[in-house]
């Protein structure tokens, strides 16, 4: 084994990322649910001027619902398949 491989293997053993880094699915899920709710509400209270601007598509409503669905997907995925963190050494 080369010196480099020894050094990196050693650092890999001491690394804390696998054991202590949070799961990004929680953040994506949370942010998109929040954005989804905000934008969906904007869509439910849409003004005629906004509708006209967006070619009569209630784009806030559809985008909001889409973001909400994506957010929920990540939260459900997290719930169904949680990461089992390896036992931290030491």
């Amino acid at each position: 084994m080369s010196d480099l491989q020894k050094e990196v293997s050693d650092l890999e053993r001491k690394s804390a990322t696998a054991a202590r880094l949070f799961d990004i699915r929680r953040i994506i899920g949370g942010l998109f649910v929040l954005y989804g709710v905000i934008v969906t509400i904007a869509g439910l209270t849409v003004s005629d001027a906004d509708l006209k601007k967006a070619e009569d598509i209630n784009i806030n409503l559809w985008t909001g619902l889409g973001m909400l669905a994506l957010g929920l997907f990540f939260l459900i995925w997290l719930k169904l398949r949680p990461v089992t963190a390896p036992e931290p050494e030491e």
Partner: peptide, 24 residues
């Protein structure tokens, strides 16, 4: 928030520069 929350996972230089070679 992501920056602060990730802070506790940084113990070695490998964590800082290459996420400890441990991401999915």
């Amino acid at each position: 928030g992501i920056g602060f929350a990730a802070r506790r996972s940084v113990r070695t230089s490998l964590d800082f520069f290459l996420s400890g070679r441990s991401l999915p």
